[in-house]
């Protein structure tokens, strides 16, 4: 028997807000990559932006969205797979941002970077789904899976174009809103592709030791607060720098 998915609308909205906040923070850091004076500065910017995008925007959004989804069954998450999903998002986003932020802006680089980011979003999602432990077997509608990956890639390309090619308010806010669409669009299309088949309550042996919703909620809260602090710190430092610039 298929388990139905019911969503808590408030948490769905919150998942988008977190995706946008994470993307905004990450792109604030990422647009500094082309201005790095040394390779060390450059890699620090790439890794910081990749970490915030991968863990802050994508991973945190995914698990808020999972908390929003009620299948009527108890769910826990396999810790190593959950950690690996965050690592994949971090690696793919770092790679994508490093490519997008190098030398002169070009469409070929944008596409490569968008594919990296999009696959990072999708990879994180489907590994995160594989980390779910519950009394059901998961299967997928392959065509919807493909659509979810395409959404992630196309929206990532659009977000990176806005972030690196434009200047001004649209650059930061517009790109963050579009990246939020990339992450959430991919996620909820991916969720539409999944079928939870009730297996009669047979849960994996390590079900009891898995991460539970309340643990995830606390982790996500910490991530969100960290992102807000980074945004404030980056803005403060940039304001300071602007005021100290001599003509």
């Amino acid at each position: 028997m298929h388990a139905h998915q019911n969503y808590n609308l408030l948490l769905v909205v919150l998942s988008y807000v977190i995706a946008v906040l994470g993307s905004f923070t990450a792109l604030q850091l990422a647009v500094g990559i082309p201005n790095a004076q040394t390779s060390r500065q450059r890699w620090m910017s790439v890794l910081a932006a990749g970490a915030v995008m991968g863990v802050g925007a994508i991973w945190a959004m995914h698990f808020i969205a999972m908390l929003a989804c009620d299948t009527g069954m108890a769910v826990t998450y396999n810790l190593p797979r959950t950690a690996l999903s965050a690592l994949i998002a971090f690696g793919a986003c770092s790679l994508g941002l490093a490519v997008a932020g190098s030398a002169i802006f070009s469409w070929s680089k944008l596409v490569v970077a968008g594919v990296c980011m999009g696959l990072g979003v999708a990879g994180m999602h489907y590994l995160g789904m594989a980390a779910m432990m519950m009394g059901a077997d998961l299967s997928y509608d392959v065509s919807l899976v493909a659509v979810s990956v395409v959404i992630a890639i196309v929206a990532s390309i659009a977000a990176l174009w806005l972030a690196f090619n434009l200047r001004g308010p649209l650059q930061m806010l517009g790109s963050a809103l579009v990246m939020g669409v990339a992450v959430c669009g991919m996620h909820y299309t991916g969720m539409a592709a999944v079928i939870f088949e009730d297996n009669g309550g047979q849960v994996p042996a390590n079900f009891a030791s898995g991460l539970r919703g309340n643990n995830l909620g606390m982790s996500i809260f910490v991530v969100a607060v960290a992102m807000l602090l980074i945004v404030l710190a980056v803005n403060y430092l940039r304001q300071q720098r602007r005021s100290q610039l001599s003509i």
Partner: peptide
């Protein structure tokens, strides 16, 4: 430097 430095080098 004040207003437009953030972003990629452009053509």
């Amino acid at each position: 430097k004040r207003d437009y430095a953030m972003g990629a080098k452009l053509g």
